[in-house]
């Protein structure tokens, strides 16, 4: 018997060569080219997607340049933000009038108004329901019967009422500001909104 050593197991990068860890001949670069092809295809497609009309990139450009289409989106928010400026101090009461109390179509807009006003006015408050009523959407506001007493309004430092309403089931929504400071509730002072 000769003393020659048996050839050891083949190794790749210091580890035992297995089906998952095997040498690839140096000339077989086709996999690398394929990987490059896939990634470059993805990048080229992504660039093309942003060059299309109505692409996200073009929409952002419209935002940045304040295009008319964008103005139409932002206008309702600017109107609501202006309301915050018109109600100088104190908290607000949001009331529903007319079809706004029952029309499910306006629930979305109502929720939007309430969320935006609550955000813009903070640390002032917009009261729309008793504090233990869960409001998760405009529909929850419509289901709330909230008619606070004069004393409650004074205790909560409410100076204005915002009346969100419509005279017609499919009519334009409007938002009116009513001062409550001197008890003259019901006097329309400023018609501000629309949707």
């Amino acid at each position: 018997m000769g003393r020659g050593r048996r050839p050891g197991p083949r190794r790749n990068r210091g580890k035992l060569e297995t089906i998952l860890n095997q040498l690839i001949p140096g000339h077989r670069r086709s996999f690398e080219y394929a990987a490059w092809g896939v990634v470059l295809l993805v990048l080229a497609h992504l660039c093309w997607l942003q060059l299309r009309p109505k692409s996200e990139c073009r929409q952002l450009y419209a935002v940045a340049t304040k295009s008319p289409a964008f103005q139409a989106i932002i206008l309702p928010y600017e109107r609501l933000d202006r309301i915050a400026g018109q109600t100088r101090d104190g908290n607000l009461l949001l009331k529903l009038a007319g079809y706004a109390k029952t029309n499910p179509v306006v629930a979305y807009t109502l929720g939007e108004f309430y969320y935006r006003l609550s955000y813009t006015l903070y640390p002032r408050r917009v009261y729309v329901a008793p504090a233990d009523n869960v409001i998760n959407n405009g529909g929850d506001i419509q289901q709330t019967e909230f008619n606070p007493s004069r004393q409650w309004l004074q205790e909560h430092d409410v100076h204005f009422a915002l009346v969100f309403g419509s005279g017609h089931a499919d009519g334009e929504m409007h938002l009116d500001i009513l001062p409550l400071d001197d008890g003259r509730t019901g006097t329309q002072t400023n018609r501000t909104g629309g949707n």
């Binding site: 935002v63 969320y115 903070y122």
Partner: peptide, 26 residues
């Protein structure tokens, strides 16, 4: 492009002002 457009307008996305922006103010 993302940065330029984001900085040119106030937050108008619902989640951004109703959830995150509101909490930041508080």
């Amino acid at each position: 492009i993302i940065a330029g457009s984001a900085l040119s307008v106030p937050p108008v996305d619902w989640d951004s002002f109703a959830i995150w922006g509101f909490k930041a103010k508080v």
